[in-house]
Design a protein around this nucleic acid. Structure first.
Lengths: 266, 266
DNA sequence: AACCCGCTAATGGTCGGACCATTCAGCGAA
DNA sequence: TTCGCTGAATGGTCCGACCATTAGCGGGTT
């Protein structure tokens, strides 16, 4: 791993700040909940401009390491946080959009992660976790549900399982991956015709997965999760005939556009 | 997913820039290799200060989406890139250091990812990929190798397998996870006494994994990878007795410190 | 005609200073 | 004791200036 030496041998000013913060974290002098020194103060002590400090703070913010609040006292300032999931989501979403991560690759990773989550959930799931998942299931059971709401509940269900697994990295990655695929999948949904059939399959898939986890059957849960994701993906990509696809009415399209998940940083 | 509305309802200036870039990417008007408008130009057209644009660029840089170069013409400017691995590494490393991601959780995810990689590698590995892995194996075969070099070759081997799998997300995540664990593992290595025994086990593990992949035995490769990672982790954590641990000589410690992986952004 | 050199413009990198909006803590008045 | 005001501290934003680096152009030399 090389240092970042853009042009000359001089590190950039904001990198000095990053290096300083890194060191504080590595040496345990800064932890979640602690405040960074005030921007003016930090700038003076590291002998860089305040702009450089702010650029470093933006970097840390983009990595989900820090969050800033205006105002004096404990309520203000830049605080070490612990919300990697948003940062991961945005990172994956951008790179999926840039086609650095092809969707089939993403699917394979998602299967690997959710298999792990399913297995862990059979061991670690608390009653509360199961209740969350069950709630999502009930939403999806509504026969009059529209595609958007179903998709949201679907996401909720999978995230609930990932959370139930009790593995923060796995659940954050799972949530991030689902979010990164949200737009591409929505795009495919738009042209999907046999919605009723697909939604029926998804519903029964979910019920079966939940049942397996509830009865603590790890192997079956793992198997079902993989089968579920694969078949759902196939239903969205493999097109037996053009007859399956038709454009949606304009007004319905508009409703979906409105739900854009344009989360930014903090 | 909510928008980031820190204080008032007004989005921050740099978020306007991020939103603009996002839109360009989503709508396909910007792709890898394209140049962002010059900072002054972008600032003028979005009616924000240049500082705001720069903060947005830092955010994108932290996400591995962009890279900046000084100077005029095609060689200069801010360019859309496709290097998510460094960004992922830094993100994971920081959050592992902040204990947002407990190491046991990271290990479980690593196993899931490397099992996937091993399976895919039995299908997709090219001769070149296998040659890379073989080279790392040969380095590790050297009986007089020191811990640092062995660890590097070990990383190389696993990354080579992940690359051989042909799944960019899986390989980038694998590399990032390994990097994020580098310092913590080095920390444990420092106190490990029975190095010769451990290194022998690791060596034979690697050889067996490679052989399984070479003969295209997916199930066995998967099984061996999981067993390997678990046993290696156990060797580093599970301490049968304090006799296994002893501090290293000072000079050896210093050599390790020098290899700090302080990669920053670009 | 071909080559070389230096100038100019464009770009990101850096800085200092200024002002705003928000928040909190402390103090004084009721 | 309680309310309210005020001042200080903080991040948010902008402006303008200057620097270092780079590419491209144009003139001069060979």
């Amino acid at each position: 791993m090389l240092h970042a030496m853009p042009r000359s041998g001089q590190p950039q000013a904001f990198e000095l700040v990053l290096a300083w913060v890194d060191a504080q974290i590595l040496e345990g002098r800064l932890g979640v909940g602690d405040h960074l020194p005030a921007e003016r103060e930090l700038a003076a002590s590291l002998d860089v401009s305040r702009a450089a400090v702010r650029e470093a703070v933006r970097t840390l913010q983009a990595q989900g390491v820090v969050n800033s609040f205006v105002g004096a006292g404990p309520g203000g300032g830049t605080v070490l946080t612990s919300v990697p999931s948003r940062a991961l989501s945005r990172l994956l979403r951008l790179h999926v959009a840039l086609a650095n991560f092809p969707l089939p690759d993403v699917i394979e990773v998602r299967i690997a992660l959710e298999r792990l989550s399913a297995r862990l959930a059979t061991v670690n799931a608390s009653d509360d976790d199961l209740a969350d998942a069950r709630r999502a299931l009930e939403v999806m059971r509504d026969p009059s549900i529209d595609r958007q709401a179903f998709n949201d509940a679907d996401t909720e269900f999978h995230v609930a399982l990932a959370t139930a697994a009790g593995n923060r990295l796995a659940s954050d990655l799972t949530a991030a991956i689902r979010e990164s695929m949200r737009l591409p999948i929505l795009d495919r949904f738009r042209h999907l015709r046999d919605w009723d059939e697909v939604v029926g399959d998804l519903r029964s898939d979910h019920e079966a997965i939940f049942a397996a986890i509830e009865r603590r059957d790890a192997d079956e849960a793992e198997r079902l999760v993989e089968a579920h994701i694969r078949s759902a993906w196939l239903a969205l990509t493999h097109v037996p005939g053009d007859a399956l696809f038709e454009p949606l009415p304009e007004d319905e399209l508009a409703a979906w556009e409105g739900a854009e998940g344009g989360d930014l940083i903090s």
